[in-house]
Design a protein around this nucleic acid. Structure first.
Lengths: 302, 302
DNA sequence: TCATACGTATTGATAATACCTATGGGTTCG
DNA sequence: CGAACCCATAGGTATTATCAATACGTATGA
């Protein structure tokens, strides 16, 4: 097998491509210009190809250099991932951990589980970010997040998930709503009931519509948060579906709304953790999800 | 950023995992046992984790070691790919190049283009392999092939393709066949004509059936090669579709078969090059395809 | 219980190399 | 034409990689 380049050399050519000059690139990687110059030259020797056009106004990559650059970036990030994965395997869920949570979960779940989570993983430094699923997944793909708590199912490339627990949907309406007087309630009863839902982009909207497959949403009004939503329901704009988690967290307390569970089989959404496929912290994401499940299953002190 | 391991160290731990002993692994990578021992120890220091359980009967990876091993393998192959890609970019289509070709292309195309191909790329050492599309794609994915000449469309994960040229289908039948007396011929005329085709697994079979969307195949007989096929047609077992490429190459010469082209829009299959997504030789595969197209477009000396 | 075989760890010397400073020889620009 | 900038080269030094020799630990069998 032919000789391999050094990670250092790859790091150097990446810096060179980014700074367009041997001297500035050298500065960026904290070596002198001759050092970087020699390293690049040896890299070219190893690869048997000229990678850089040296000019008086700096350095430009040749086409071959561009091809190498792209792959060098890949190799470097893979190597960095290896380090992270090793450290994570040695001491899971310690140190900084960037977790995204969707807005229909965060305000109701986090207060409930964060203390227990910190107790179980005392060395963790949780950085939380609340956003829509799409944007969280983008952040996962770009490595700006380590994991995300989202509602499933949600089709997304490059993303893997692990189910944590099921969040039942509850029917919520003003007290004078006809459906609140029914003895039993199934999702199909909502067929003729235009539902008031969150605005587009919230996965809860789509999951609610899926739950009552024949139902439809009011197209004239939509809420921007669950708190807004219950206020709009209260003022008679329509009925809605709420995740039990939010109701348990007191979303409708003292609102004077009727809340009814559906008869089995209950409709709902699945909550799960998600991570970038191949992420160095996939194993930790799963562990985190399992820990959250444990915490939720444990007799809550409410 | 924390310190990165060396490719050498990754190579060492891969060898250690494969041989299960420091001494044998050291032998395999041509260093002494203390060298490898020190390298592994430093790798463990860098990663902050114990990767190997040292025992009296050898060494076993810890779970963290397994996690590292998997990623180390990825980093190493990516690095090797980088070398190959760089060499390929510097001197394209030189040196060994492993090309797969499907059986319905190989015998008719290769004799025609190989001389010109060698003239255009004098430094190439072509290794050819003839097999069914599925098996060629497997070989691409496992890096046993650099590229493959196949018929498109053909859905396959991890495979990318580049169209080279269109290969028209021709209708072939014994001279007494009713359809040979038609003034015009379109694929839909084959609706009631059970076609004699290659056996299952050959993409030509599926492409031919797609071409005459209403047609069907004889289920009682199937041929194992185009040569067999024309003999079976000759003996009256049915009509068939043949790629023009095969006919031009003399497949039916002196067979006494009627061969008719379809009226426009002609039906056919697309021939293209395929390679593993991310392959270091993707660019070369495209170049090869373009070169083949040029050769076929050039006024053939036949 | 002890010798043996088969492991890995340690040590001290040496060769390889990574890196720096100093300098030279090109461009480009005012 | 000199100043400023840029890359290549040379020579010296500190670091590191590697080796041979050896110590040490643990099974195994007489």
């Amino acid at each position: 097998m032919s000789q391999l380049p050094t990670l250092r050399q790859l790091q150097f050519i990446i810096a060179l491509a980014e700074h367009g000059s041997f001297s500035r690139a050298a500065e960026a990687v904290f070596v002198t210009q001759p050092t970087l110059s020699a390293a690049i030259k040896e890299l070219e020797t190893i690869l048997g190809t000229v990678l850089v056009e040296r000019g008086a106004r700096g350095a430009v990559l040749t086409p071959a250099g561009d091809a190498v650059l792209e792959r060098a970036r890949r190799v470097m990030t893979e190597a960095e991932d290896l380090v992270i994965a090793a450290q994570a395997a040695g001491e899971p869920l310690a140190g900084p951990f960037k977790l995204g949570v969707i807005p229909t979960i965060a305000p109701f779940l986090l207060p409930q589980i964060l203390p227990a989570l910190r107790a179980r993983f005392p060395d963790i430094e949780l950085f939380l970010r609340e956003d829509l699923t799409d944007r969280l997944f983008d952040a996962l793909r770009e490595r700006r997040l380590d994991a995300a708590l989202v509602a499933l199912p949600y089709d997304a490339p490059m993303i893997e998930t692990h189910a944590v627990w099921s969040d039942e949907f509850l029917f919520a309406a003003p007290p004078d709503h006809p459906l609140t007087r029914r003895a039993t309630l199934s999702p199909s009863d909502l067929a003729d009931e235009p539902l008031l839902l969150l605005e587009d982009g919230h996965c809860l909207r789509d999951h609610a519509l899926t739950a009552c497959s024949t139902g439809s949403a009011r197209s004239d009004f939509a809420a921007t948060s669950l708190h807004t939503l219950v206020h709009m329901v209260k003022s008679g704009l329509g009925a809605t579906l709420l995740p039990r988690m939010a109701v348990d967290a007191g979303l409708v307390d003292r609102m004077g709304l009727e809340v009814r569970a559906f008869d089995p089989p209950v409709a709902g959404r699945e909550i799960g953790v998600a991570w970038r496929k191949g992420s160095a912290r996939a194993e930790e994401a799963i562990q985190l999800g399992d820990a959250i499940r444990d915490i939720l299953d444990a007799p809550a002190a409410d």
